[in-house]
């Protein structure tokens, strides 16, 4: 079994937003210099899901793929240190300033080039753009059944020919399955990803990592990056807040509670 996990390397989404600034000219969110980058947490959980599948089916090969720049090698290294077997970095100026659509084309072409992939895993959305387009998009581009928002991923059938997923819904969950090959997007409900062990981190340094350019993927550069994007960012801004908080002060917490109720009635909130 061959599992491909698509991951994105992003500025730490848990960092305070004061660590970011807005470049209105470039229409970009700019992280402070030195702010640490991480594998987008949902994508890290997708790697975790792949590792759990491999625990169930020894011998499964896990390939981590990312589209990015030199620094994005760190994302692949993290995946390899968690236990993935090999990494693919898609890096080409032609990929720059694309959108979810062009990223999907490139990642799909890479998975096609790998040729043997049975299961594609992604996070439910990247924790920077929060769009959630690329995962399901890869499924469409490769004509695979798509199962989204997984909190559990297991293989079924004698030859592990079926993927079964518990999906997170608004009001509960559902168990769904599809024949392989298939694509699954992973949600935070999957649980915490494992930390890389020292042993795996040492081994990771020797695991193969390849770099593919647009030409390696036989993609027309006119369909990629800014040229191929179907959306263009017009503007980016921080929404304004105009609320002034009125703090309820009193000698004891009990009095604070009582005073808050009285104040809410005065202000006609209750």
């Amino acid at each position: 079994m061959h599992i491909a996990v698509c991951i994105k390397y992003i500025p730490d989404p848990e960092a305070a937003f004061s660590q970011f600034s807005i470049d209105e000219q470039a229409k970009k969110v700019v992280p402070a210099p030195g702010l640490r980058h991480v594998v987008s947490p949902f994508d890290e959980q997708a790697i975790e899901a792949a590792l759990r599948v491999r625990e169930q089916h020894a011998g499964a090969r896990i390939t981590v793929i990312t589209l990015g720049n030199e620094a994005s090698r760190n994302a692949l290294k993290h995946g390899l240190a968690m236990g993935a077997d090999d990494g693919v970095l898609l890096m080409d100026p032609a990929f720059d300033d694309g959108d979810g659509y062009t990223t999907t084309l490139a990642l799909s072409a890479a998975i096609r080039k790998l040729a043997t992939v049975d299961l594609v895993l992604t996070g439910r959305q990247a924790a920077d753009g929060d769009a959630g387009i690329v995962g399901a998009g890869i499924g469409e581009e490769l004509n695979l059944p798509v199962l989204t928002f997984a909190k559990a991923v297991v293989m079924e059938g004698a030859a592990a020919s079926v993927v079964r997923v518990e999906r997170v819904l608004d009001d509960g969950t559902e168990i769904v399955e599809a024949d392989l090959p298939a694509l699954v997007t992973v949600s935070n409900e999957l649980g915490a990803p494992r930390a890389p062990s020292l042993r795996e981190t040492m081994r990771a340094a020797r695991k193969p990592m390849v770099v593919w350019k647009a030409a390696d993927l036989e993609l027309d550069v006119a369909t990629l990056g800014a040229a191929g994007a179907r959306t263009a960012r017009e503007r980016i801004f921080v929404p304004s807040k105009a609320v002034q908080c009125e703090f309820i002060e009193a000698a004891t917490p009990e009095e604070q509670g009582a005073r808050l109720a009285a104040r809410l009635r005065e202000a006609k909130v209750l």
Partner: peptide, 27 residues
């Protein structure tokens, strides 16, 4: 959260909330 809130209480919820609940019931 206080930057979003119209009213705020800094304190231990385990004491504030029951008092708030009782006071609301008494309104």
């Amino acid at each position: 959260i206080f930057r979003e809130a119209r009213f705020g209480v800094t304190g231990d919820f385990a004491k504030v909330v029951p008092a708030l609940t009782a006071a609301i019931r008494a309104l």
